[in-house]
Design a protein around this nucleic acid. Structure first.
Lengths: 348, 348
DNA sequence: TTCAAGCACTATACCGGTTTAGGGTCCATA
DNA sequence: TATGGACCCTAAACCGGTATAGTGCTTGAA
């Protein structure tokens, strides 16, 4: 005898049930529940009371069938299974998105795919089955193959982070130029003349934007910047750090495009026998608990990621409703100065 | 003039369209598409060809309305917004779940909530609106308030990680007893006699199970274990480390219930002037990229988290179909020995 | 030659909501 | 005393599928 209760089909209340108990038709119930005119105050209140009592909620599929909206949005991040790593960013982003969608009674389909082919298949499937009303796109590449597919499908989409990625898709982005200015000013102000920059994948818009923004900001601040491409992984971060610190003219500070590489780079610098921040300063172009985990703690640019997610979700809701949110920007990030950045060594 | 294409409503093909083009009724099309008898070979092939050509996919809402299945499952993790941290575990879990659900043409509603009240509200809402056919429950507490709610609702659920949490819900769990044996054997084999254990929240089943399993395994191995409660955060990990290492009879090895606390604990030990693994050995009861990020790299118990997610999803599918998967266990974890564990100091 | 069986298909109801057209009832105004 | 309008409600269609009952035709056996 199994102790586990077997699953009853558990028929849930419908407006038909309410109608029967209230002695009116389904139509009247619908009017009452949706604040439409067409029912008396008394009937409306009777219906609402019954609905509340029996715990009625609209069947999402029935709604979806009528108004053509799925009441859900999609977000896919693609990472090869083995590379799924430390992504505090996405957790926070999802939390922010959720908060905004909840206000619209919409849900979030979130998942992880192997690569962008798999992601594209998911979007096609979701849209063809009307499972989503729109999607968010993250990690946009230059010539990203997802963009033409979404445009062709007419699937409402908002790009998170790369306004240049598409002429037709809307976007919400962080202000990389501001971040670059803040970082350049920070290091120039401390007296650094030559700084390194360890980036993410070179074909990401994100990377391209940051490299350009940092080059310009550095020029303005009168300092030199050397960018080395990596891929956000700890290994690549360490490798890029070795490359930079073995150069003849060694930079006295290194900026990393994410927290994981920054932490990895810190470890590598220390392994090379360089003290941080005595001989090399370090900063992360993204903050998280990781930056506070190491010794010294890392100076980092901090964004309100949850708000970022909320703004992206808002733009997507507008887009799905037929509007055009265009391209929007997040407020400037703030620099959190911790122990990993200070004046360059006097010798320099 | 906006450059952005305005959103056409984009009417999608229905079986009505297929029926018209094939010159048959919707019913015949439905038979053909679902491999039901009732249509000739010729008609079936004609219908399938048209469906493929115009890219038809069943409208998920229409399907849901008929068979009463939402074609989606839910997963909520709750974390206060500020505490959202490094959760490589969940990313991998989601990847595994997704893979299994995809085979069933089901989707995953994944989100983050502030606390379990918010999570319960989400489950109620999802179930009342028939958005999900079932949910996964993670981080089960002792006397978890989510359990009676789900039981009352009759919402099919599978607990990830704590078979003791509920008599009626099914579960899929890692084998904590095996993990404890492996860790105890590892340290006992190296010659340690007294080890510390920094745990997660004391009211989690997960924590309770590990504390008990480790106590038993240690007794078997003839060594002593001292557990200190923490909460998976870096700060608490560091604090617990200080508590352990300031004891009169200092443990010569410390096991941490997650990777983040282990990394934090390593930093704290080094800050206290203790060499790792020379004076203190360290191991993490969960592996991730974090463990390879620090110096020395951390010895850790490694699970196949994606497979874990896939198994949980499979159990949930069975549960939602009316079956009873009961309580299942994952295969034993494997210990990855890295630089953070070695023989205890000779003095001891 | 007749009848049953089988096949291929149509017509229609149905899932749970929303929406539109229309039908009584009551009251105010001409 | 008709007439019009507002009000409150009902009947029925509809969204996109699936399922069931039924129809007309062919075929084969009695």
């Amino acid at each position: 005898m199994a102790m586990v209760a077997s699953q009853r089909p558990a028929r849930r209340p419908t407006i038909g049930d309410i109608a029967r108990r209230a002695g009116v038709t389904k139509a009247a119930v619908s009017f009452a529940l949706n604040d439409q005119p067409g029912v008396s105050r008394a009937t409306r209140e009777r219906v609402l009371a019954i609905a509340r009592e029996i715990g009625w909620q609209p069947h999402s599929a029935a709604r979806a069938l009528i108004d053509g909206r799925a009441g859900a949005f999609g977000l896919v991040i693609d990472r090869p299974a083995g590379l799924l790593g430390v992504e505090p960013f996405f957790m926070q982003l999802v939390a922010g998105i959720q908060g905004e969608l909840a206000g619209d009674r919409s849900a979030l389909l979130f998942t992880v795919a192997e690569d962008y082919h798999a992601e594209i298949e998911l979007h096609r499937m979701w849209w063809a089955q009307r499972r989503v009303d729109g999607v968010l796109l993250v990690d946009l590449h230059v010539d990203d193959p997802r963009v033409p597919v979404l445009e062709e499908l007419g699937l409402p989409a908002v790009v998170v982070g790369a306004p240049q990625g598409s002429a037709t898709l809307a976007s919400v982005a962080t202000d990389e130029a501001a971040g670059a200015r803040i970082l350049a000013a920070h290091f120039a102000g401390l007296g650094h003349r030559r700084i390194g920059h360890v980036t993410g994948m070179a074909d990401l818009w994100h990377t391209r934007l940051r490299v350009e923004a940092l080059a310009e900001a550095a020029a303005q601040a009168g300092i030199e910047v050397v960018s080395v491409a990596a891929d956000y992984s700890a290994e690549a971060g360490a490798q890029a750090t070795r490359t930079l610190l073995h150069r003849g003219e060694r930079p006295t500070a290194v900026i990393y495009d994410n927290d994981l590489m920054a932490v990895s780079g810190l470890g590598e610098a220390q392994r090379l026998g360089l003290s941080v921040p005595g001989q090399v300063s370090i900063a992360a172009w993204d903050d998280s608990v990781l930056c506070r985990l190491v010794n010294p703690m890392l100076t980092a640019l901090s964004h309100d990621v949850a708000a970022y997610g909320a703004h992206a979700a808002r733009a997507l809701l507008e887009r799905a409703a037929g509007g055009d949110p265009g391209h929007r920007y997040e407020p400037e990030p703030t620099l959190v100065v911790r122990g990993s950045s200070s004046r360059p060594p006097a010798a320099d």
